[in-house]
């Protein structure tokens, strides 16, 4: 059984870099008229050529899955359907790599009215490297690429991502997404499984069979009425987990893919 414990130095202060490390612009005057979405956490913004891109998340970034929202303004006015692409990139001394993500954000979410996408950060930022949100914005009216750059973000450590080497000598990324705030009783369970084809390519695994069992090691028992995660699209699997008390829990997954045993993988949880 593969059990990953990532012990990296916490990069808690990195989040404050977002407010100072804007790479392409120092024109602060242009930010004055931009609205900040009140219930979201602003990751930073990229400005140039009269365009401003703002990035938001639900909170400070940690290793794991995050929804990320963008808004694009031209001269202070919102562009309703901008053309832009996004990708997370970890810059390390020796090399760089990406992680699973959704590039485009053409649809606006009904709650915030922002362009929504997501990314899975597979390691924390810190002394080993830093994460950047790479952005490219095209201006259809001008017919050329209008803005390109990145926003450096801090990512704290967590135990929500397991990258493992399976028996088939392939590497996979298993991400525990839900529950984010577990409660006593039945909780939605969501995980994502991606195949690390290369350092830059992480296609979703859509045919996996995932068995699931929550377990309290200190009590030596689990719980009943849990639901094994099944694929819902794009590498995301949904099920249910029953926590019958608070305390230390293990989320135990057993994964198979096309007859290949991808192993047993465990996330530790405490609430």
């Amino acid at each position: 059984m593969f059990r990953s414990k990532q012990h990296f130095i916490s990069a808690a202060l990195a989040v404050f870099y977002l407010f100072t490390a804007i790479s392409c612009s120092n024109d602060n005057d242009q930010n004055d008229g931009l609205a900040v979405v009140p219930d979201l956490f602003k990751l930073g913004e990229l400005t140039g050529n009269g365009l401003t891109v703002e990035a938001y998340s639900e909170g400070p970034l940690t290793v794991g899955y995050h929804r990320i929202w963008f808004e694009v303004h031209r001269d202070g006015e919102q562009i309703e359907r901008p053309e832009f692409s996004f990708a997370p990139m970890m810059h390390m001394e020796a090399h760089s790599h990406r992680s699973p993500f959704q590039s485009s954000g053409q649809e606006r979410d009904p709650v915030h009215g922002l362009l929504e996408t997501w990314a899975i950060f597979t390691m924390p930022s810190g002394s080993m490297g830093s994460w950047h949100l790479e952005l490219t914005v095209s201006d259809p009216e001008r017919g050329h690429e209008a803005l390109e750059g990145d926003i450096q973000v801090g990512v704290d450590d967590s135990n929500r991502v397991i990258t493992f080497l399976a028996e088939n000598e392939e590497r996979y990324v298993l991400t525990w997404i839900e529950p984010t705030e577990p409660v006593t009783g039945l909780n939605d369970l969501m995980v994502a499984l991606h195949h690390r084809e290369s350092m830059m390519n992480f296609p979703p695994v859509t045919e996996a069979d995932i068995g699931f069992e929550p377990w309290m090691p200190s009590m030596d028992h689990g719980s009943s009425n849990n639901v094994d995660p099944t694929h819902q699209g794009n590498g995301f699997y949904e099920g249910a987990v029953n926590f019958n008390m608070t305390g230390d829990w293990e989320l135990r997954f057993e994964i198979g893919l096309d007859g290949v045993d991808l192993g047993r993988h465990t996330f530790e949880l405490e609430f």
């Binding site: 006593t184 309290m216 200190s218 008390m245 305390g247 230390d248």
Partner: peptide, 15 residues
Amino acid sequence: KMIHIDPDVSEMYLL
């Protein structure tokens, strides 16, 4: 409450 004799194990609680 369920309090493990190992202080590193978190306290458990149920109704």
